[in-house]
């Protein structure tokens, strides 16, 4: 399988930025992913963007970093187009509807501004009316890249892709900030969706000890963050 993570691990400045985001967003929690998988931690992008006070001080992504994130995402979208030899007509963001995080929607505005030749979409998988489920300048036959924050099993991406398929579009690819390696890549590949992420668990593995300390200082429940012990494909029921 080709490399599925796009970050440049040889660039300490870039990696520091992703690690800072991970620190700002990581929470120990009783969280159920869209697939129904219960997890003891998750990344809350709302709080990383709004700012979160912890025992180590205020974690907040500043304006310069937001600008840097925007540039990196734009660059990675371009790399994916080259890698897959196609052009994305639309960049889609998922409005999960009361199940957050919605911080990624804030980033959408920035990405939309920098991608002048592409139209951004909001996909709302929970809408029953098909023509209300995709907002934005979308046309039948468009290639759509779904951009999201964290992928667990890929079920949210599948639901969003399903709305686009129903309207006659293609979803050749999805890009997440973090793929938790819980089977999403394999699950989505069954439907022709190539999943890429900016970072993977391995890219953050050196910082887990640090992150654990942060959580302990905040008196949060210690996370179970051994990604490797999950099985890869058993978490998502077959949709065939």
């Amino acid at each position: 399988m080709s490399k599925r993570t796009l970050c440049n691990t040889n660039d300490p400045k870039e990696m520091d930025m992703w690690i800072k985001i991970a620190k700002a967003a990581l929470k120990s929690s009783s969280y159920n992913a869209n697939s129904g998988i219960a997890t003891s931690f998750y990344f809350d992008f709302d709080e990383s963007i709004l700012g979160r006070r912890t025992a180590e001080g205020l974690f907040k992504v500043n304006a310069t970093e937001i600008d840097e994130i925007q540039k990196k995402i734009t660059k990675y979208i371009s790399e994916l187009e080259n890698k897959l030899s196609l052009t994305f007509d639309n960049i889609a963001f998922i409005d999960k509807g009361n199940v957050g995080p919605v911080g990624i929607i804030g980033l959408m505005a920035l990405v939309a501004i920098s991608l002048k030749d592409k139209n951004c979409l909001i996909v709302r998988p929970r809408k029953r009316l098909i023509n209300a489920s995709v907002k934005g300048n979308f046309k039948k036959g468009n290639n759509v890249l779904i951009l999201t924050d964290v992928v667990t099993s890929g079920s949210t991406i599948y639901q969003a892709a399903n709305k686009i398929w129903q309207l006659g579009g293609s979803v050749p690819c999805a890009l997440a900030w973090l793929d938790r390696n819980l089977g999403a890549s394999e699950n989505l590949a069954q439907y022709g969706v190539n999943l890429y992420s900016i970072v993977g668990p391995k890219d953050l593995s050196n910082t887990w000890t640090d992150l654990k300390k942060t959580l302990q200082k905040d008196k949060q429940k210690e996370c179970f963050i051994d990604f490797g012990s999950y099985s890869s494909t058993s978490v998502w029921p077959s949709l065939n």
């Binding site: 509807g97 929970r126 809408k127 029953r128 009316l129 023509n131 209300a132 907002k135």
Partner: peptide, 17 residues
């Protein structure tokens, strides 16, 4: 709640609908 979420908030207009 379901009717409002799916049919009433921000649904595109058409005569048939």
């Amino acid at each position: 709640d379901d009717i409002f979420a799916n049919l009433l908030l921000d649904s595109p207009f058409s005569t048939e609908i």
